[in-house]
Design a protein around this nucleic acid. Structure first.
Lengths: 95, 95
DNA sequence: TAGATTTAGACAATATTTGACAAGAACTAA
DNA sequence: TTAGTTCTTGTCAAATATTGTCTAAATCTA
């Protein structure tokens, strides 16, 4: 499940309106709509607030958010998988 | 080997001066210096030119470049490895 | 249809990245 | 040491990219 999908589905199971979520995280309704459609990436601060507002485990949301950034960097590249694997190696040896 | 290191070592084995590489890829000497120090990320076009100028396999350089972008996104994060793994999964299923 | 919610587009505001220049540091050779 | 060359660093403007806001249109629901 992708970030935007999770946000939308969580909001719906909690029966919240866009404007309600918007006010909780202090943002424009249109912006929340865009985030749920994947047109806008939330900032890290918005992720923090969304986790609270929608009652989602923070680390889960953060992981999806980071993963999305990574995905955007490499998507469409022939070398995408190899490049990500290489990063993984680097992270593991540095850990 | 990280991108910047590779660029520098290749230039040195080929006995090229910074300004020579700079002129080959049509850039300021200072910029090449920064790239070799890791202070600046080359653009994709610069990667293409650098591969030619320094006689490095293009896909190798590109992979390092992509990997570096990914690394920058997640470095320092507790969830770095998990997030990258998640992206890898996504890429594999979409392949 | 009326009223509410959601979405889309255009554009302003911000943030980030990049390139260029100049001055300083480091190195080399005489 | 000095002069000449190479490399590095800092700063700032320019270019790009991202994010937020507003308005109006589309969609949904009763």
């Amino acid at each position: 499940m992708i970030l935007s999908e999770l946000l939308k589905s969580k909001r719906e199971t909690k029966n919240l309106l866009l404007r309600e979520v918007a006010s909780m995280i202090d943002a424009d309704t249109a912006l929340i709509s865009k985030i749920e459609k994947g047109d806008r990436k939330p900032t890290r601060e918005q992720i923090d607030k969304l986790a609270i507002a929608l009652d989602i485990e923070h680390s889960k949301l953060l992981k999806l958010w980071l993963s999305e950034k990574v995905y955007e960097d490499v998507k469409g590249e022939d070398l995408a998988i190899e490049a990500v694997k290489l990063t993984l190696k680097r992270l593991k040896t540095e850990k």
